[in-house]
């Protein structure tokens, strides 16, 4: 009975995995198709990859996506960290207020945040484009960085930064030499979340960008009304990159751990 149940749960989990991975495999498979069809495989070819790399709008979309994610990550990580440190030394009322306001975009549907920003930019007569998109990305990334850094800050011993100041550190030195080294891990985690949020964003980008500026999501959205195998090639490349990055991120610490264990055993 127990064994039978074990097999059933394995089958169930396998079925869910099939559901999750079949479309991804399907997209990658048909990115090598020699014809335009997405249902009949007529032969192996790399022509959709060639077409993709030759397509200027796709290359631009990739460039805008990466550039926007890099800028938004750097700015939101710095601002979010500094704000979180500042808030930790503020009164509770102010801390609560900032937390509540930061929660607003997370509790609201993305489309509401997006049109709010769009109305805001256009009422100020700011021409929407890459700059407004980056500003919007910074705005929604900062709360995630703070969410990652704040709990770690709470665990710190406040006496350490006080001691640094007493011993003649400027506040800047106290922050960079005492506080930041202790919360480094949570800052990196916050930056990673910010980067992936920005990289994948569609709804907010769509409403805050201007003519001629698309990121990958917007490009996919506006070009899939008809069958378009270059999008398969683009999707496949995203799948390759993410798989490689995730394997590195997950396997490297595992190998390091094994190496450490081995060193301990050798010693």
């Amino acid at each position: 009975m127990k064994q039978k149940r074990g097999i059933l749960s394995k089958i169930y989990f396998a079925l869910i995995m099939v559901f999750f991975y079949v479309p991804i495999v399907y997209v990658v498979f048909f990115s090598f198709n020699s014809s335009k069809s997405l249902s009949k495989f007529t032969g192996f070819s790399l022509k959709w990859y060639q077409a993709m790399f030759a397509n200027r709008s796709i290359m631009e979309a990739i460039w805008y996506t990466v550039l926007c994610a890099v800028i938004a990550t750097i700015v939101s990580t710095i601002v979010g960290t500094i704000t979180a440190i500042g808030l930790s030394k503020n009164r509770k009322v102010i801390r609560e207020l900032v937390t509540q306001v930061n929660n607003l975009p997370m509790l609201n549907p993305e489309i509401v945040t997006a049109i709010g920003l769009m109305l805001f930019f256009t009422s100020l007569r700011i021409q929407t484009g890459f700059t407004t998109m980056v500003l919007a990305h910074i705005a929604f990334c900062i709360p995630y960085v703070m969410l990652s850094v704040t709990p770690r800050l709470r665990q710190l011993d406040p006496n350490l930064s006080d001691a640094a100041l007493d011993l003649g550190c400027t506040p800047w030195q106290a922050m960079t030499k005492v506080i930041i080294p202790q919360i480094k891990g949570s800052i990196v985690a916050g930056a990673l979340v910010a980067f992936s949020m920005s990289f994948d964003d569609f709804v907010i980008s769509m409403f805050t960008t201007g003519p001629g500026v698309s990121n990958i999501s917007i490009y996919v959205y506006s070009n899939v009304k008809r069958v378009n195998p270059t999008i398969n090639a683009l999707s496949a490349i995203i799948v390759y990159v993410i798989t490689i990055v995730l394997i590195i991120v997950n396997v490297v610490p595992m190998l390091r751990e094994r190496k450490q264990k081995k060193e301990v055993l050798d010693a």
Binding site: T83, N102, F120, A139
Partner: peptide
Amino acid sequence: FNKMAYPYIIWMTVMIVVPMLMI
């Protein structure tokens, strides 16, 4: 240190609260 949070409070008002009110 507490002054370091003030710029963000202004930013947050402009980029989160004002857009909501605009809607």
